[in-house]
């Protein structure tokens, strides 16, 4: 059974006004336990709208969301259960941060879940350290921080709930490159250690190639492509038509091929590209 199942979701904003906008036009997708899923798509394609349906923040005009096989909108109880198990980190940290200190902000989720004080304390400290912030930040106001620091606090606030489905809306936006690489490691780690599902949105095709088991491409409120990194990224022209791109390293690879070097299958990561090039050179006696 899928941990989360989305059935034919339809959702429109500003209903009954001249700006009525179909943001989701019949989206169906299953998220399996233990998967890392990347959601990509052009600006305004409906990614954030879809994510906000997954923990019941938005209610669909029609269609349904099932958590562990049960509709999350069946009762107050099912919705509450979903909120504790499906943790969503918003696209802009300012949408999420609210309390007077970083400590209180990160403690909010676990406290709400009724965890004992000791456990809350441990989770707050662990998750703040996990996102690369020192203990000095705990007593600061989350509003008096830099953009990337706010992002880290917002992510810690969701991690501290240890959700069965961790959902991150553009978690690497605004992180410095080392912070970004660490966050990608964190996604892998969290998934490995807990066996929980992670769903994240990204505009960075290189990042997606590094961690995702499955890629979903949205276009104008619909799912346009779905598959492994390989399956999706091998369709470069289709991606370009959807406002997307192949990773930077892939364009290096493609230009090498265009220059007449027969490097075999296309690569999407620096490591993969390195291996292929070394193999090519050693087979040609060029090492």
């Amino acid at each position: 059974m899928s941990v989360l199942s989305v059935k034919n979701l339809i959702y429109g904003y500003s209903k009954g006004t001249p700006f009525e906008k179909g943001a989701l036009k019949g989206v169906s997708v299953d998220f399996e336990k233990g998967e890392i899923v990347a959601l990509i798509g052009h600006t305004g394609s409906g990614k954030s709208t879809l994510l906000q349906h997954l923990n019941g923040l938005l209610k669909p005009d029609s269609g349904d969301v099932l958590f562990e096989g049960e509709s999350i909108h069946k009762s107050k109880q099912t919705l509450r259960n979903c909120r504790f198990n499906v943790g969503l980190c918003f696209q802009y940290p300012e949408q999420q941060l609210f309390d007077s200190t970083v400590y209180k902000d990160v403690a909010f989720g676990p406290a709400n879940m009724g965890l004992p004080a000791e456990e809350i304390d441990k989770r707050v400290k662990d998750s703040v350290a996990y996102v690369g912030l020192s203990e000095d930040y705990l007593e600061k106001s989350p509003f008096d921080l830099s953009g990337g620091e706010k992002r880290r606090v917002a992510i810690a606030g969701v991690l501290s709930m240890e959700p069965k489905v961790l959902i991150l809306d553009e978690p690497t936006a605004g992180l410095d490159p080392v912070g970004k690489n660490n966050l990608l490691k964190l996604i892998k780690d969290y998934n490995n250690k807990t066996g929980n599902t992670v769903i994240f949105v990204s505009h960075n095709m290189d990042d997606v190639a590094l961690v995702a088991d499955k890629v979903i491409v949205m276009n104008d409120g619909e799912i346009a492509m779905e598959g492994t990194v390989e399956e999706v990224y091998s369709q470069g022209e289709k991606l370009a038509g959807l406002g997307l791109d192949v990773p930077e390293i892939t364009s290096v690879f493609i230009e090498l091929k265009n220059a007449g070097f027969d490097l075999g299958k296309t690569e999407y990561t620096v490591d993969g590209a390195k291996e292929s090039i070394i193999k090519f050179l050693s087979e040609g006696g060029l090492l």
Partner: peptide, 17 residues
């Protein structure tokens, strides 16, 4: 906290080999 552009990173990786 920074990195180099991807093509240069690939060149550095190759250099190690």
């Amino acid at each position: 906290g920074l990195t180099v552009p991807k093509p240069l990173e690939l060149a550095y990786q190759l250099q190690k080999n």
